[in-house]
Amino acid sequence: MTLPPTLSVENLTVSYPVRAGTFWRPPTFLTAVDEVTFAIAPGETLGLVGESGSGKTTVGRAVMRRVNTSAGRIFFRGEEITQMEGEPLRKLRARMQLVLQDPYTSLNPRMRIADIVAEPLLVHGRVKNTSEARDHVRALLDLVGMPADAHLRYPHSFSGGQRQRVGIARALALEPDLIVADEPVSALDVSVQAQVVNLLQDIQQRMGLSYLFIAHDLSVVRHISHRIAIMYAGRIVEIAPRERVFAAPVHPYTKTLLSAVPIPDPKIQRTRKRLIPLGEPVDLANPPPGCRFQTRCAFATDQCRVTSPPLLERSKGHVAACWNF
């Protein structure tokens, strides 16, 4: 018997009202996430990559049941959570946690580190007060590599990287099965980024949890992910095992994205040809029929302008949505 995936998402669609409807005019909607489907196995890291506004953060928020889904279904360890609310949802929060992007604003400045890390334990009734959680908090802070005296201090006395470690400790406190990491390193220095990414990997090996790792930096994603999903304008255009994405990208958008990543060798870098996307990005409030990338794609045909390409399997575990490749 195989374990059900930690998280699986089927045709997830999220749309936001842009303008409220009036008596004369129906409300206009912006579809931030359009029919997204993926799954994350236990102990696996799925990297979710895309440019700003591609809907990757919204996917993370929808999975966490922070924003309401318009259509589609979300399963957590085989159990449907799409419509879950109230107390069951609060209980569920103990098993999936979020690491936020900005470590400078994601910790309450008026709480000590010990209180911040102990808070999940407290609100889920695992401990009665912070002093009861002291040993647990110390162990967690030790796990994320924080100094021993950190628990009595306030967030402002720590650097960005250290604060992010506190954020990770808070997310780990309840030993969740899934952590949604929403650009957890993009606000940090490059050297600190490596430390935090390595920390996340270490923890995964020790605790066997799954990550949905949202980022726009391909090199970070390449380092941590087992599989990578590429998003463009609210849709997933390609999902493949890490090395397949870099070795044999299929979708033109993936190729464009990869060509923007510099190679740390001047000779090779000089011979490379940068693929420049054409045209304008698609207007999400009023998307044309067919492929979302058609306005910027050099290979777009009439078919691309009429029908959306389905995600088809290209090799084992490698799917892409393109008519031409």
């Binding site: 929060r93 979020l98 936020l100 604003t105 808070e119 999940p120």
Partner: peptide, 16 residues
């Protein structure tokens, strides 16, 4: 603010 969002996602009740 992210820390209030974090508190809600951690599972704090509205009163807390």
């Amino acid at each position: 603010t992210p820390y209030v969002e974090a508190a809600e996602l951690v599972g704090c009740r509205p009163a807390r």
